[in-house]
Design a protein around this nucleic acid. Structure first.
Lengths: 153, 153
DNA sequence: AGCTAATTGCAAATATGTAGCGTTAAGAAC
DNA sequence: GTTCTTAACGCTACATATTTGCAATTAGCT
């Protein structure tokens, strides 16, 4: 993410913290910067690896706790994925995902056609829709070439 | 799932196993029956709990391994979800999901409007699309009432 | 009935995430 | 800038969710 966008996001984060009486620490700032720079929908541990290069003695616990908190107050989101560990998404606005069914990669796509989707009525489920994501499921480039290699051997 | 549909699915499974030289065991049959009966997009452990009532001395390892195998050969699918453990979906055909951002519930919805989505071109990502899901993200009925209670106390 | 390799179950290892708790420090009040 | 309150930190231990290696078993072909 470019610097201007990051500054904007950091400002938004500051406003939310002020409103809710939350404190901004060195650790939280570093975690937010790290996750804004990662575009692969990282797990908490991947964020930890990245932050630890900047704040070497940060605790894993803090990273896990902070990411959960960020998602709760809407500073980041959680990505829906087919795998076994929570994945975070720095993007909060409407966008969509390519999902690799071999390696569980989550890849961002933007498409106005998808954005324009008419959301059906869900009142019979008593479900309150906040937003939506379209997930195109299939095989990513890397796994396609990998699979070809494995078959040819 | 009703008996006719289950029989059909079991037959499809038999064909796949024959074609690929896989063996059908008491355990695998029980696991497939269990997962076809669960409509809440269960985790491997939830499937284990269910199967264990029918085959008491089945191993957890077998359930985990078998579900992975089922998904690989396309007998079932994996559901995309925001949580931290893999969730399986007995449905393999096109359908969509309501995703609760509080409790991670995954609820099936069917809507021809969503099915008719025009899938954008993904060739610039080198991504081969197999199918898609629309996920409506929000708050489920149960969590809405729970939240109201918590706020009023 | 015999054979072969897929499959199972066990035990132990590895990921992933959380809770409890004493210590530190952000940021408001003065 | 000092003080004060309490959010947040980091540690350790715990909890949960899988995975791996391997010896024993068994489905399904001949």
């Amino acid at each position: 993410m470019d610097d201007a966008a990051k500054t904007e996001r950091m400002d938004a984060y500051r406003r939310i913290c002020r409103d809710q009486g939350l404190r901004i620490t060195v650790q939280k700032r570093a975690i937010l910067e790290a996750v804004l720079d990662l575009d692969n929908h990282p797990t908490a541990d991947q964020v930890y690896e990245s932050v630890a290069r900047v704040v070497p003695d940060i605790s894993r616990t803090t990273v896990y706790r902070t990411l959960e908190g960020f998602a709760r107050i809407g500073v980041i989101t959680k990505a829906c994925h087919p795998g076994r560990s929570t994945r975070y998404d720095p993007r909060v606005e409407l966008h969509h995902h390519l999902i690799c069914l071999h390696c569980d990669a989550v890849i961002d796509i933007t498409d106005t056609g998808l954005d324009a989707l008419r959301i059906p009525d869900t009142s019979d489920h008593g479900f309150e829709v906040r937003d939506f994501r379209v997930q195109l499921r299939g095989i990513c480039r890397r796994c396609q070439t990998k699979d070809r290699k494995e078959k040819s051997t």
